Simulated scan of single mutants.
Amino acid sequence: MENARCCLCHQETETVLHVLWSCGAAQDVWAGSLGRLQKSGTAQNDFLQLVTGLLMKLSDEEWNLFWITCWLIWHQRNTVIHGGVFQHPSRSAQRAVDYLKEYSIAQDSLHVPIPNHGPVQQTWQPPPETFFKLNFDDACFDEGVASGYGAVIRNEKGDVMAALAVRGGAVRDSEEVEVMACRKALEFAIDAGFTEIVLEGDNALVMKMITQAQPDLSRLGLIYEDIWCLAAGFRSISYNCIRRSANGVAHSLARFARLLDNEIVWLEEDPPPAVDALYLDSSFLN
């Protein structure tokens, strides 16, 4: 720049405040804008002071309009510097309003509503009276070379009726190890003599497959069929898909299985590997 004078009014130093607010060309644009923007003070020392003052006065819509108008004024100024013509101030003010409307419409069209599937169970909840809740989970070790299954059966008071930790073999993926853990948990509940249960797991895919009970031709189809056959042996059975935070005891037992050669069972006692998880569940219940 040859000098610091404003290239439009040639009267004052070309500061940010002057360019976007106090220059005659800018004031002509602001004059066609919303009343609250027109009537904002003109005694600011710098642009930051102006912005701070407006922030306390303007609504969200007015605030957005202010910045769009600033951008248009700056854009028009650059157009003039490079040989163009400054648009009529009223047109710039209207363009700012139109841009804000287009932005609002675009935001609405891009909005993706979050589906409401009902409340998500975050903590372990006791089963209805006369029922027992069977939670199961799995764990993979050494990149799938080995696996572990955990299962726990509790009554409406949260007392442990039976618990199981089993070390399994190699698995290919999370669905396989979860469905294996489910089958083992149902076998365990039947062997222990329980006939009315609520089955809970934290793998949405597996729980959906179990609940639908439809023919499955995948490599895991035979295991799902075993689960459906086992489920048919209960007097009453229902299913819940829960989050890991509501499945802490079974998860602790599955991780503990890494230390086992085969399996270990606890009957009517709290399994030591899951004491912390049981304490956490009881704290939510109380």
Rank of each mutant, 00 (worst) to 15 (best):
V160R: 04
R95M: 11
L217T: 08
N155M: 12
P127Y: 08
D98R: 13
D191I: 13
F188N: 00
I81A: 12
V80W: 04
N135P: 06
T195K: 07
V97S: 07
A106P: 03
C140H: 02
T195P: 00
F131L: 15
P128H: 11
D108S: 15
I81F: 13
A165I: 04
G148V: 03
G193I: 08
F86Q: 03
A204G: 05
K184F: 03
Y103E: 07
P113W: 09
E176T: 11
R183C: 08
S92F: 02
F194P: 00
A139T: 08
V152P: 00
H82K: 10
C182H: 02
Q94C: 06
N116S: 14
D108Y: 05
H75G: 10
Q121R: 15
A213H: 09
L199I: 10
T195Q: 07
E143N: 15
F188G: 01
H88K: 14
L199D: 02
L199C: 08
T211V: 06
A106M: 13
L100E: 11
I197K: 01
E176N: 11
R154F: 06
I197P: 00
K133I: 02
D138M: 12
S218Y: 09
C140P: 02
V152E: 03
F132Y: 13
L164A: 04
R91H: 10
S104K: 15
C182R: 01
L134S: 02
H75T: 15
A204I: 13
P215I: 10
D142I: 14
L164E: 02
P119L: 14
H88M: 09
P128G: 12
V198E: 11
Q122L: 13
G144M: 05
E176Q: 14
V160E: 02
L186T: 01
A181I: 09
P215H: 07
G118N: 09
P113I: 09
A139L: 06
A204H: 08
M209P: 00
S174H: 07
A170C: 11
E176G: 06
Q76C: 13
F131E: 09
R91S: 10
L134H: 04
L164V: 06
P127H: 05
K157W: 13
H88R: 14
Q94I: 05
F194A: 01
A96F: 03
M180A: 12
F86K: 04
P119V: 15
T130K: 10
V80I: 12
K184A: 08
F194G: 00
P113L: 08
L164Q: 04
F188P: 00
T79N: 14
V198S: 07
T130D: 12
A189Y: 00
Q107V: 15
P128K: 10
E196F: 04
A163W: 02
E187R: 04
G150R: 04
P89H: 04
